[in-house]
Design a protein around this nucleic acid. Structure first.
Length: 276
DNA sequence: CAAGACTCCTGACGGC
DNA sequence: TGCCGTCAGGAGTCTT
């Protein structure tokens, strides 16, 4: 579920709640949620650490940890929500579907809940050892139309799966890829090496515009799933142009939107605005 | 290298 | 009401 804007929203809200707090202990209720290191090392490594900062990298939530009893060196706790992961901060140690619960020094709890159990937590000293290789951040200076034009040409892949590939560009998911391709007027099956330079620039701008607006609106919520840690739904779903709107008229040209399957993912586009 | 199938999981929803 | 198939915002692994 959560893509870059949702994860960014979660990080901003958790930061308010957690920076300066100390983790007293961790209780693991579903072992596979802890990707690494071993369970024992995870519990030991997290005990007594102070959360000194939170940040986002791609769709990962990065907790920066200081101090600790055993080893004084800084550490990182990295979380990925995958489809249904959520963090809760509060008095309830185990909200519904809690997989890992951390006791904090103020008596409250940080709970990682995840209905479908795809989400993961990992602990270690370096971010690049805790995540697979990641492409640039679309909202950073490392990403612009020039970079994208060159990168697209260096591959020969369908645009949709390529933009979902986190090692190519980090943070986009199924919703925002569809929305960005529509805004850029590009068909999801277009081969990446057949995108003109001006069109690549437009795609870069579209990706950034969609992500910035979605962050402003605290992401997208269209079922009981995604909520911010404060329990509020996002609001970007009201601005979807194509996602989930197949059969309905395109807001730009009026033609009925289509849904196809690309790389096992539902893909929404306008057959007139996005030509093959 | 690219693309598709299959897997990990649970729950909601539509059809009968 | 109950059962069954289908689908879901992610991503890793394996095969073709």
């Amino acid at each position: 579920m959560p893509e870059l804007p949702e994860v960014e929203t979660v990080v901003r809200q958790l930061r308010e709640q957690l920076v300066g707090r100390r983790v007293e202990s961790a209780k693991v209720l579903w072992e596979r949620t802890v990707a690494r290191p071993s369970l024992a090392a995870f519990r030991r490594g997290i005990r007594g650490r102070e959360i000194s900062g939170l940040r986002r990298r791609a769709k990962y939530i990065v907790f920066e940890l200081d101090g600790g009893e055993a080893s004084p060196g800084g550490r990182l706790l990295v979380g990925h929500l995958r489809m249904t992961g959520r963090f809760f901060v509060g008095d309830d140690p185990e909200p519904r579907a809690t997989r890992v619960s951390f006791r904090l020094d103020d008596g409250r709890f940080l709970a990682f809940a995840d209905i479908r159990k795809f989400g993961r937590l990992a602990l270690g000293p370096r971010l690049d050892a805790l995540t697979p290789p990641l492409g640039p951040e679309p909202l950073s200076d490392d990403f612009d139309g020039e970079w994208l034009a060159t990168a697209l040409r260096a591959r020969r892949r369908q645009l949709k799966p390529l933009l979902l590939d986190q090692s190519f560009l980090a943070g986009l998911g199924n919703i925002y890829v569809d929305e960005a391709l529509h805004l850029a007027g590009l068909h999801p099956l277009r081969s990446s090496d057949r995108v003109s330079k001006p069109r690549a620039r437009r795609l870069a701008e579209s990706i950034q515009a969609v992500l910035r607006r979605a962050i402003e609106l605290q992401g997208s919520s269209f079922d009981t799933f995604y909520r911010t840690p404060e329990g509020q739904p996002g609001n970007y779903q009201h601005e979807f142009q194509v996602y989930g709107r197949h059969g309905k008229p395109c807001r730009s040209c009026g033609k009925p939107l289509r849904r196809i399957v690309v790389g096992q993912r539902g893909t929404h586009y306008c057959p007139r605005c996005q030509r093959a």
